[in-house]
């Protein structure tokens, strides 16, 4: 969806007036076309479209997966929004997810751009550093959870040890409600490898001539960064903001492994629900409390919300390089 934004829009290829159509071939072309996209189409219909439509249907029912669904109309939706006895942490999960998105997305982009700039600058070993910085992305989520629970450990954790060097007192990161979101966002920023690679590609595509022109005009490194690099990277940034927000609003694996990975830790979303991400909330209702209908309704609320947010971004954010 967003790929045409990254790539420079190709100039319209003029529809060649001289292109002749041989009679009878068009229909056959169509057939082959359909045949070639058939696997993708079948996959799309069976594994994406049908489940999505089924979920839409179930969102209007009360369904526990075992007995026949009961049609309840809009009740799941109204209860989610207004009945805090039935869904005591629905609004809390929205608040947590929005806070997480607001902190994690900018942090990830800054980290990714920083890393990309560093790799772009060094002459030797850039491949090695690129590999090392990309490693967190390919690390299994369960391992990420284990690693960071150790790093954030209130007694032995490396994070506290490092902060202690500059005089910041020990914190109980994952068990203090106010610190949970920043702690999670920091892990997300550590996993910024994909954004870093995309930024790197963006940096490489900035023409050398522009940089040289800026140097000749007497622009220092800081000025060059803000007047040349940032504006030229705008399409990349736009793409990363859009996809980053979509991903952050759907964060699940990270909170799940951080708060449940240690065997008997509970999945209820951290201290005082401070890490209860929206999708974790969906998961709990779908598979722990047997309320699949309500869970489907929640996922549709999320879908609509994401569509609105994305639409607003396309409408009001500057996308073109300048």
């Amino acid at each position: 969806m967003a790929s045409p934004v990254v790539a420079q829009r190709p100039a319209e290829t003029p529809a060649g007036p001289g292109r002749r159509r041989r009679p009878g071939v068009g229909r056959r072309d169509h057939l082959i076309g359909w045949l070639l996209i058939a696997p993708a189409l079948v996959y799309f219909i069976i594994f994406l479209l049908y489940p999505a439509l089924a979920a839409l249907y179930y969102s209007f029912t009360e369904w526990d997966l075992h007995s026949a669904p009961i049609w309840v109309g809009l009740q799941n939706y109204t209860d989610l929004f207004f009945d805090d006895v039935k869904y005591p942490h629905f609004w809390k999960s929205i608040q947590v997810t929005l806070q997480y998105t607001l902190v994690a997305v900018p942090l990830t982009l800054v980290a990714a751009l920083g890393q990309a700039l560093l790799i772009n600058t060094i002459r030797r070993g850039s491949n090695l550093f690129r590999l090392l910085l990309f490693l967190p992305v390919v690390t299994a989520e369960a391992a990420v959870g284990a690693i960071w629970r150790w790093l954030y450990d209130p007694q032995y954790g490396l994070v506290n040890a490092v902060l202690g060097l500059v005089g910041i007192p020990r914190q109980n990161w994952l068990n203090t409600p106010e610190l949970v979101i920043p702690a999670l966002a920091f892990i997300a920023a550590w996993q910024c490898g994909i954004s870093m690679i995309i930024y790197l590609a963006g940096l490489k595509s900035i023409p050398e001539s522009i940089r040289e022109a800026a140097v000749i005009d007497g622009a220092g490194p800081v000025q060059r960064f803000f007047k040349v690099v940032v504006p030229m990277l705008r399409p990349t940034t736009f793409y990363l903001v859009v996809t980053g927000i979509i991903a952050a609003l759907q964060v699940f694996g990270l909170v799940y492994v951080i708060f449940s990975g240690g065997g008997n830790r509970s999945v209820t979303g951290g201290p005082e629900q401070s890490g209860l991400a929206y999708v974790l909330h969906i998961y709990l209702y779908a598979f722990r409390y047997n309320a699949m209908g309500a869970a489907c309704a929640m996922s549709f609320i999320l879908l609509v919300f994401i569509m609105i947010i994305t639409f607003v971004q396309f409408k009001f954010m500057k996308q073109e390089a300048s």
Binding site: R149, W150, D153, P154, Q155, Y156, R170, N172, L174, N175, G262
Partner: peptide, 10 residues
């Protein structure tokens, strides 16, 4: 205190 018991395998 929690800052002791929240440590892994306290």
């Amino acid at each position: 205190p929690r800052e002791i018991t929240d440590s892994d395998q306290a």
